Amino acid sequence: MRKETLESIASDLRTGRSVNLSVEDFPCFSEEAAIEDPRTSPEALARISAGLTAKDACVFERAARAVEEGDMAWVGFKVVDNASVAVSNVDNDVTKSYGTIGSADGYDLVFFCNDAKEVVAARDYSARDFFQMKDVTRGPSMHNDQFEGLTWASVPLFDSVKVWLLGASDVAVETAALARHVGFEVEVVDDDASFLSEERFPGCKRTLVSSFDDLGSMRANSSDCVCVLTRGHMHDPEGCVWAIAQGVRYVGMMGCKGKNGRVHDLCVDAGMTEEQWEAIKRPIGLKFGAKTPAELAISIVAELVDVRYRQRYSQEAREKHDASLW
């Protein structure tokens, strides 16, 4: 999300101009999202846009500041499809009690929420609303369909973590689909166009190189993750050398002990130090007996989620979160 976009929306609202929130900026209301839940359709976003007033400018102003500060924050939406039901819903014996009313009112609402549980909205919200607003930070909304009459949606104001898949192998196909599903940005690199197709990697950036020796022309960020998954492991050394040279946060490589020994020798011959070699996670992924491409993808993406979690949250915050689970 661009800060300038949010500032423009806020400015238009402050001066009384109508706004038209776009699906490109708020993809939680895309046609794809509407397939899973018709309440989060482009038409719903248009309805919400038409209902915004100058009072709602504070939400977008706070969101713009969050982008500037690099805050973990979201713009969220309460989407109401049955006003009377949304207000009258009550908790059951399992859920924590949030009072005798459900949602504060039967109207759509746009709001800001960050990971520190700060909420900014133009209207009052109920204790139940606040519970669901906070869960936007587990995004998308963790309990968006817990109560009838309304749903919740959100868009993050921070960038996704990028995952490079070096090699368009069968394991990479499964890993790409699962990584995208849990919110990673995915780029797949290979030297054979027949493997690097849209059908195999829908929604991913696909980069064709003439040779894995040409990886040096590409640049990764320090926050990126690299999974070395080349077909038949034939170009794992080139992938490992490139990833280490980029200084990325995480590098993982598939393979058994014997294969890793040969890759080690080739990487060292290419100038990699022993310390750099030890920084590569081998074998890639969490260890729980995964063998098939789909099972291996689960182990890989589970590890990526853990890497992202540790990247975004301090040790103190992780300990607090873990303690709350027991």
Rank of each mutant, 00 (worst) to 15 (best):
A83H: 03
V23K: 05
R47Q: 14
N221P: 00
K291G: 06
T15P: 00
F147M: 09
E32I: 15
M133S: 05
N92A: 12
R308V: 09
Q276P: 03
R2V: 01
S223F: 04
W74Q: 08
T15H: 11
V301H: 12
V228Y: 09
T230F: 00
K205F: 08
P293S: 09
E198S: 14
Q311P: 04
Y313W: 12
A10N: 15
E36W: 13
Q311A: 04
A317Q: 11
L21K: 10
D105R: 09
D108A: 03
A179D: 11
D91P: 02
C267Y: 01
R249V: 01
G167R: 07
A57G: 08
Q276G: 10
T207Q: 06
T40M: 10
I35D: 07
K96M: 14
F212A: 04
I9H: 05
A168N: 01
K287L: 09
K257N: 05
V228M: 07
N82Q: 03
P237N: 04
V59Y: 02
L196I: 01
R17Q: 15
G183A: 04
G106M: 06
L109A: 12
Q276A: 15
D170Q: 11
V80Y: 03
N89G: 12
V268N: 07
G106H: 04
E31L: 14
I101D: 09
M218F: 13
Y98G: 08
F131Q: 15
V136G: 01
D213S: 08
